[in-house]
């Protein structure tokens, strides 16, 4: 395992934790929130190293956040939002958004537009990922409900 990867994973955990502290997440949710963040970032990295591109990784990252956030919320009996919001921090397109601003400020509108499209695509990808997670959860409950009524 190379050291750069390890540093990134630790960085994601610490960043998620720190953001959670800034929005006053209860202490008993901090560790689990950090782990959700790390897991989604690992999914994102894995997808990126296999397929590349910047959309698919974000879709699956957000999907992981949705599923794990729901599980964590059930386990800790807390609102889902407590786990979802900090975990999203490593996936937010902050770098690209900055490039948009930089190129607008320096007058290079063509490059600004290129990056703006990337920001929009990533934001959309995150939304789709959450949507898919919601779909998977509701489908799961529907199927288990059907199964239960079928058995009894």
């Amino acid at each position: 395992m190379d050291i750069e990867f390890l540093v990134k994973v630790i960085g994601v955990y610490v960043a998620t934790l720190c953001f959670a502290i800034l929005i006053n997440v209860p202490p008993r949710a901090l560790n689990l929130g950090g782990l959700v963040g790390v897991a989604s970032y690992l999914v994102y990295l894995t997808y990126n190293s296999i397929f590349g591109g910047y959309v698919g990784g974000n879709v699956f990252g957000a999907f992981t956040i949705g599923i794990l956030g729901m599980l964590a919320a059930r386990y800790k009996k807390m609102p889902i939002i407590v786990f979802n919001i900090p975990a999203l921090v490593p996936l937010v397109p902050g770098g690209q958004a900055y490039e948009v601003m930089k190129y607008i400020a320096t007058g290079n509108t063509h490059l600004a537009f290129v990056y703006l499209m990337q920001v929009a695509m990533i934001a959309g990808a995150l939304a789709i990922g959450f949507l898919l997670a919601e779909l998977a959860i509701q489908l799961f409950f529907h199927v288990t409900h059907l199964f239960k009524s079928f058995v009894s």
Binding site: G11, V12, V14, A15, L17, L22, V89, P90, G94
Partner: peptide, 12 residues
């Protein structure tokens, strides 16, 4: 935490 968040996100 604001400080460490900035630093670690920059590294990531």
């Amino acid at each position: 935490s604001a400080a460490i968040l900035s630093g670690s996100i920059e590294v990531v």
